[in-house]
């Protein structure tokens, strides 16, 4: 697998190339988008991006965990976690290019 890592800089470069805003403004917009998504999630609101996927916040209860090294029991406190569900469009795009047998099984 390729193993390259795409970062904010690559996303703002793509916006710069595609829309023709300045590099600074492109970077600011990438930041605003991530901020709006994060803020919605922090308010407890789910975020749905069609043909990409959806982010939702799930409440987890308290449970007893274990330190795998020492075997010691430690309480895991109730917390909110973020769950991402990829859309079928995204899953298909990934499998179309990465699987040799793309389309063979549904």
């Amino acid at each position: 697998m390729a193993g390259k890592t795409v970062t904010r800089a690559d996303l703002s470069e793509a916006v710069y190339q595609e829309v023709g805003l300045s590099r600074n403004e492109s970077a600011d917009l990438v930041e605003s988008i991530l901020k709006e998504i994060s803020d919605a999630l922090i308010r407890g609101e789910g975020v749905k991006v069609s043909s990409f996927g959806s982010f939702s916040v799930r409440q987890k209860g308290r449970r007893i965990g274990r330190n795998p090294k020492t075997g010691e029991e430690v309480p895991i406190l109730p917390r909110r976690v973020l769950v991402f569900r990829a859309s079928h469009v995204l899953k298909n795009r990934i499998n179309d290019t990465l699987t040799d047998t793309a389309g063979a099984a549904s």
Binding site: M1, A2, G3, K4, T5, V6, T7, D10, L11, A14, V15, E18, V19, V30, I33, V49, S51, F52, L90, R93, I94, D96, T97, L98
Partner: peptide, 16 residues
């Protein structure tokens, strides 16, 4: 563009 870039990266097997 942003979601398309992320999708394209994943389709190449890259990390974002």
């Amino acid at each position: 563009t942003i979601f398309e870039e992320i999708t394209a990266a994943l389709a190449r097997g890259d990390r974002v």
